[in-house]
Structures are given as structure tokens and as C-alpha cells.
């Protein structure tokens, strides 16, 4: 190695080293959101008294919880919504009442699914329609393509008795799922 190529080498090594010292932490900084996963494995919550639910009238309930948005911590916020559907009426004992819960997040692209008695569950963003049991309405019935890749996302839910008051409540485990997939995959 002669003098000249040594000088070239030294210049390059110092230059690239300095660049890497900035670039590597820089990349780590930029990609932080990929590693910062929200750890909530679902929020279990009593959402509504059984008495307040009627068959054929899905009820929208709010799920509250704490939420961290970068540097802001929200103690108690609405973090999601669910539709509660009662399937059996008062003639069935409370503990045997069939109740279902659907996430109100549209599995297509994440808008909020609405309900009205004429059109059932529907999403205003891209016109996805669902039957009362959460299944997508078929293309033939709809007259246009149903953009949803899967049915509404079922949430774990059960009827529980309040130990003190003896009232029956619907308890829901709220989770979020990835959009756009044909299967239900929990959001990491």
C-alpha cells in the first residue's frame, strides 16, 4: 500500500464511520413504531345490563380503557365499540340467554359499522353489508360486490351475575383484529 492509497483509505473509513454513527441510531429511531407494540391482550369489561337488551335490536356499547398516544396518556377513553345482539328473550333464564358481540370495526378497512333496522349492519365507507348474525350479505342480494373479506368479528362474550346486586350483565372481551384479511387475526 502506498502513501496515496493509505490516505484514501483513512479518509473513507473515517467518513463512513461517522456516517454510520448517525445512520444506525437514526434507523433505530425511525423504526421505533415497529417495535413499540401495545400490550393490551384484550379488555374484559361489563358493558350492558341484560335487562336493557331486546331481541332484534342490536345495541352499541362503548369499551373504555386507558390509551397511550405517544407522549399523551389517556386514563379513561373510549377505545372501541361493540354491537351486542340478544338472541333469546325473557322466556329463557338469564344464565342461558344467548348473546353475541361483534366488534364495530369493519373488517374491510376499519370504519365504524352502523346498524339500522332496514339495512342491518352496514359500513358507510365502502358499502359493506352484514346480516344480523354478522355474516356478509351476498352479492346477489346486495346488487353490488360486498367489499368485506370476512364476517363481522365475533368478540368473546358471556352473561354474568353481579355478586352484590344480583343483576345480570353482558361481559365482553374486546380485541382488535387486522383488516382486509379473510381470517380473523388479532392485531399485535
Amino acid at each position: 500500500m502506498n502513501r496515496r492509497s493509505l490516505m484514501k483509505l483513512v479518509s473513507r473509513v473515517i467518513g463512513w464511520t461517522c456516517a454510520l454513527v448517525v445512520a444506525v441510531p437514526g434507523i433505530s429511531f425511525i423504526t421505533a413504531p415497529l417495535r413499540r407494540r401495545s400490550s393490551s391482550g384484550g379488555i374484559k369489561q361489563r358493558v350492558v345490563k341484560l335487562d336493557n337488551l331486546r331481541v332484534g335490536e342490536p345495541t352499541q356499547v362503548a369499551i373504555t380503557g386507558s390509551r397511550q398516544d405517544a407522549w399523551v396518556h389517556y386514563d379513561e377513553e373510549v377505545v372501541g365499540r361493540a354491537w351486542i345482539v340478544r338472541e333469546t328473550d325473557d322466556s329463557v333464564a338469564p344464565e342461558e340467554t344467548r348473546v353475541r358481540a361483534f366488534s364495530s370495526v369493519c373488517p374491510h378497512l376499519g370504519c365504524v359499522v352502523q346498524f339500522n333496522s332496514e339495512r342491518g349492519f352496514n359500513c358507510p365507507c365502502h358499502k359493506a353489508f352484514f346480516q344480523p348474525d354478522g355474516q356478509p350479505v351476498s352479492e346477489a342480494e346486495l346488487g353490488h360486490k360486498n367489499p368485506t373479506p370476512r364476517s363481522l368479528d365475533d368478540l368473546e362474550c358471556q352473561v354474568v351475575e353481579d355478586a352484590e346486586s344480583g343483576e345480570w350483565w353482558v361481559e365482553v372481551k374486546y380485541e382488535k383484529f387486522e383488516y382486509g384479511l379473510t381470517t380473523k387475526v388479532p392485531r399485535a
Partner: peptide, 16 residues
Amino acid sequence: PIVQRLLIGGDQVGNL
């Protein structure tokens, strides 16, 4: 999914 996360800065639209 990676590009989305980097752009949104997490799961949800927010400060980032």
C-alpha cells in the same frame, strides 16, 4: 404493514 406502521407511528392515528 411495515410502511403503514412507520407512517401512522403505531396502531392508531395519533400524535406521531
